[in-house]
Amino acid sequence: KGSWTWAAFKAHPYISNVLGYTTLFASADLIQQSVLAGIDWCQTARVAAVGFCFHANFNYHWLRGLERMLPGTGVKTVTGKVVVDQLIAAPLTISAFYIGERLMVTT
């Protein structure tokens, strides 16, 4: 049973990526809320929606493109990937998170 699940995720990395990001975003929000206050399920739904609609898709394609631009696992290559990621993707994804969640609150 477990090997079938793992094989399905490996065969469909896009689906596992979307499910993974959505689960991580929702789980992180629930943990943060449980530490600070009570649970607001609407907020968790908004955070999960932003993870599902934007972050999962963006990161899936961004990381594949980054690997094509800078293939390899050497120290210099990985350092280059991190620098490019932090200069380009980090500002976009952080902005998308805050803007996306805020837009969902006002609608």
Rank of each mutant, 00 (worst) to 15 (best):
C53Y: 13
T73Y: 01
D40Y: 09
A49K: 02
Y98T: 00
T107I: 14
Q43D: 05
V78T: 12
F25R: 05
T22W: 11
A37C: 09
A56V: 10
T44S: 08
E67S: 12
M104L: 14
C42N: 15
L87E: 02
A28N: 12
P13L: 01
I39W: 05
E67G: 10
G65K: 08
R102Y: 15
G20E: 01
Y98D: 01
G2F: 09
A11K: 11
C53D: 06
Q32T: 13
C53M: 15
D85I: 11
W4S: 13
R102T: 15
T107S: 14
F25A: 07
L66F: 03
F97Y: 14
S34A: 07
V35D: 01
N17F: 10
D40L: 06
P91F: 04
T22K: 10
N17E: 11
T5G: 13
W62F: 06
W6H: 09
A26H: 00
H61W: 15
K81N: 07
G38I: 06
T107Y: 13
G2P: 07
I31R: 00
T22D: 03
I99R: 01
S16F: 01
E101C: 13
T44V: 13
Y14Q: 03
N57K: 04
A48W: 10
S27T: 10
Q86W: 04
M104A: 06
A26P: 00
R64T: 12
A7L: 11
R68M: 14
T107N: 14
D40C: 06
F25I: 11
S16E: 00
C42A: 15
A48D: 05
R68V: 15
N17C: 10
N57Y: 03
A89I: 06
P13W: 03
Y60T: 11
W4L: 13
L24R: 02
V18A: 03
G2V: 08
V35H: 09
H55S: 12
L24M: 09
D29E: 10
I94K: 12
I31H: 00
I31P: 00
A28C: 14
D40F: 09
V105A: 13
L30H: 03
T107G: 14
Q43A: 06
I15K: 12
H61S: 12
G20H: 05
T106E: 06
